[in-house]
Design a protein around this nucleic acid. Structure first.
Lengths: 219, 219
DNA sequence: CCCGGGATCAACCTTTCGGTTGATCCCGTG
DNA sequence: CACGGGATCAACCGAAAGGTTGATCCCGGG
């Protein structure tokens, strides 16, 4: 196996062209196939595997407008019998994105504005079975294990995200199938951890700390 | 005119590589230079013009993490003595993005997920002095001229910005030296114009429309 | 000169939110 | 098994926000 074969997954033709041009320009890296969303990626993966040409690494965008999103696709890929490493390549470095990706079983997390050389290293490392994280992603995970007391739980982050979309407590409750009382309890905890005393301040602070994406940002 | 010469402006190396690969693959289009932000674009423009090799069109991303943003850069370019057409190429089709771009003097507005052929047409048309708008952009502008009554006043935008920082009505009142009652009146007007019914939704909607910056965004 | 829109404020009422207390359930760790 | 943390819910209260009505002032355009 001389070459590292990559399966590109991104919904933007421009980005795919860029990654293709960039990666094929490197020694020892080639593009096995491309897909515009998660579902297509799974199909491509099956096709390549059947041909005995399974890719050595999947390069996956998290934000995809239509079709299956990156997290879902990553989780699905990791459940297959033969699972190539999935390297996440995304625009944002928010806590929620990073956590979701790692939880879904991604082998790495890189930002799209990374320099080409870093991207090359990441692809090779991931293909070799290694883990590669962008500095912020690594820092977040370290922080998460060192002092989990001050950091938000997954549930809290989830509610925070819904909060930022402008939903009321009641609407949030319906959205996640819990009671309004529980939503309020979570919010009080969130306010305490963030050091604020109302929902708008919580959104501002969480956005500043990059715990959530800016309200209205596409995902 | 033998070749349409393009100045690429985008902060992501991957996207630049994609556009370069895509555009240079077309007959009659070539890349004059590239820049990673607005300031660098102005510098490149000056350099190329001094060499007598001014580009025929500037292909500009609106969202750029660091440095001068696309709107500012577009406005700056349109103020020069010799102004090449600026074609906006962005990820989002939000109201304020489009409006801001057109206001800044852009000749066109395309989305990054447009098919390559559409992109080629757009570049050629813009270079020829024409106007080219993505369907949604065109629709928005039509709608905007037909009923302009829904736009926010300066005062309302100012209060929205304070709102997004997490301040209470009382705190906002103190901040701008008006009564809490007046703040509430303004907020009711804002909610009506944005089509929402609470402050967090107003922040989300205003952020989505790019009426205000995301809470906690870098200054 | 009158009209409209923007900004300002008050009074009033309803709904939502913030905060507390206390409780149950589940799960993983020591 | 006991303990703690996370998630769940209820009841309660005061504070804040949402919504309405009505009013004054200023300014610019028909």
């Amino acid at each position: 196996m001389t070459e590292v074969r990559v399966l590109l997954v991104d919904d933007h033709p421009v980005v795919r062209a860029g990654l293709r041009a960039m990666l094929t320009g490197f020694e020892g890296i080639s593009i096995a196939a491309e897909a515009s969303d998660g579902k297509a990626a799974l199909k491509e993966l099956a096709r390549l595997t059947a041909l005995g040409e399974a890719p050595d690494v999947v390069l996956m965008d998290l934000q995809m407008g239509a079709g299956m999103d990156g997290v879902t696709a990553t989780a699905a890929i990791r459940k297959l019998a033969s699972t190539p490493p999935v390297l996440i390549l995304t625009t944002y470095d928010t806590d929620a994105d990073i956590l979701a990706a790692v939880e879904a079983g991604a082998s790495g997390y890189m930002l799209k504005d990374a320099p080409p050389e870093q991207l090359r290293q990441a692809v090779l490392q991931a293909a070799a079975g290694g883990t590669v994280l962008a500095p912020r992603a690594a820092a977040l995970l370290m922080d998460r294990i060192s002092n989990p007391g001050t950091s938000l739980t997954q549930r809290e982050v989830q509610l925070l995200e819904l909060l930022a979309t402008g939903l009321s407590n009641r609407a949030i409750a319906k959205e996640v199938f819990i009671s309004e009382a529980t939503v309020k309890t979570h919010l009080v905890h969130i306010y305490g951890k963030l050091g604020v005393d109302n929902r708008t301040a919580a959104i501002a602070e969480a956005t500043r700390r990059r715990i959530i994406r800016p309200p209205g940002a596409k995902g």
